[in-house]
Design a protein around this nucleic acid. Structure first.
Length: 416
DNA sequence: TGGGGTTAT
DNA sequence: ATAACCC
């Protein structure tokens, strides 16, 4: 049944801004930006109309739009909460839901489509019509089973969006297609709060629209630069480029994967991750240059993190400290050191004991000293603490996979 | 240039 | 531990 998958990509509109408008409805009719440090990371459509772009500096945004209302969005808790509600809601329709960031979800609705298809074939006079847009205004042929499945998929996508709106008050876009890549590529065609289905005949048109190779999800800035050095700028360039040459340049694994991506092929399954594999908290700042300050920053980060881990119910077995040192050219240089958490400390994660904080601070400062010689001058611009390697405590129901998943997906290869 | 996440090597 | 990717 992998022959005709139907995948929905759902992408909430300006997610942080929507959440803030729900938290404070008076912001509804105003141009709104969500601020983190010196950046407007998201804005509502009111503000976008007035020229506020994604990741614009606060200074530029205020210049463009003096009436802009800003709310601080450095604490992700409200967004994380709402995001989980969205994923849970989608999970009520269908077990195969995969999160991508806080505001996107893939849903494999193949089984739902197959059910409706059978129901349809048993009914006498049924009329079927598409929900939302058809990419490239492609003509529909309901006698083509691929078309029919995707059209049923568009109806399901509409129901998912409707449920997210009526139950949570959030609007978003959806893309419906035969795999994750294509559903994601097509979902943003009409924005905001609209949906688009891609029929197979329009695949070449979609590929041709990828005028920069970096628009292909899975091809990031690094590979894009290397590809550009080979004269590859568009998805069509990539398709036309000899396989062998690509492999010698990027290695076989990467070359073959991105070559398929460039053709719109993507076999990767929709994978529900379940509970997070790590919890981290970070803070950026202009300058931190003494050990005392580092200790203070770490002590600021820990309580929030410990609270989140406590609510999760599992116990972390690894802790990591990440720093970013100031440098004029590269602002992307992060270093990290990690170590196992001593067993006697692991036990204390379940309780609300505060005597876990200072031993953890000690461990984190030791990790810090592995990277920085405090006798020499240093200049940090970011500190991050991450707990990972999370394990269920022996007899907990909470924290188990079952707590997060209503159903478990069948083992690979069990179908067929 | 935020504050997070993931997998691959 | 880092480097790549995603939002």
């Amino acid at each position: 049944s992998a022959a005709h998958r139907v995948i929905v990509h759902m992408d909430l509109d300006c997610f942080y801004a929507q959440v803030e408008m729900i938290r404070n409805p008076e912001l509804r009719d105003k141009p709104l930006g969500v601020q983190q440090k010196n950046l407007v990371v998201t804005s509502n459509y009111e503000a976008r109309k007035l020229g506020v772009k994604k990741l614009m500096s606060v200074k530029d945004a205020k210049e463009k739009c003096p009436q802009l209302v800003l709310v601080n969005g450095e604490d992700l808790a409200p967004y994380r909460e709402m995001s989980c509600k969205v994923t849970e809601l989608l999970g009520e329709f269908c077990p195969l839901v995969e999160r991508l960031g806080l505001d996107e979800n893939f849903v494999d609705i193949t089984e739902m489509v197959e059910k409706r298809l059978k129901r349809l074939q048993q009914s006498e006079c049924a009329t079927v019509s598409v929900s939302g847009h058809v990419y490239n205004d492609q003509a529909i042929n309901l006698h083509d089973p691929r078309h029919l499945r995707l059209i049923l998929g568009s109806q399901i996508a509409e129901e998912l969006r409707e449920a997210v709106y009526t139950r949570l008050g959030l609007t978003g876009c959806a893309g419906v297609a035969a795999n994750k890549l294509l559903s994601k590529l097509v979902s943003g065609t009409f924005k905001p709060n609209q949906q688009t289905v891609l029929l197979p005949e329009s695949l070449p048109h979609l590929i041709r629209s990828l005028d920069r190779i970096q628009k292909v999800p899975g091809i990031g800035s690094k590979t894009a630069k290397r590809l550009e050095a080979l004269g590859i700028r568009t998805a069509c360039d990539l398709q036309a480029f000899p396989c062998a040459a690509l492999e010698t340049e990027l290695g076989a694994a990467v070359a073959q994967r991105i070559r398929k991506l460039g053709c719109g092929e993507d076999e990767s399954p929709v994978t529900p991750w379940g509970p997070p594999q790590s919890f981290s908290d970070e803070d950026s700042f202009k300058k931190c240059s003494s050990e005392v300050e580092v200790k203070e920053k770490i002590e600021e980060l820990l309580p929030n993190l410990l609270d989140r881990i406590h609510k999760d119910g599992r116990q972390p077995h690894t802790v990591r400290l990440t720093i970013r040192q100031f440098s004029t050219e590269k602002w992307f240089n992060r270093e990290s050191r990690q170590c196992p958490i001593p067993p006697h400390l692991i036990q204390k994660f379940g309780k609300e004991s505060s005597d876990i904080v200072s031993p953890l601070v000690d461990i984190l400062l030791k990790l810090f000293h592995k990277m920085i010689d405090v006798h020499l001058p240093f200049h940090l611009t970011l500190l991050s603490v991450c707990f990972s390697n999370l394990k269920d405590l022996p007899h907990s129901k909470k924290g188990s996979i079952a707590f997060y998943l209503k159903q478990v997906s069948p083992p690979a290869g069990s179908g067929k």
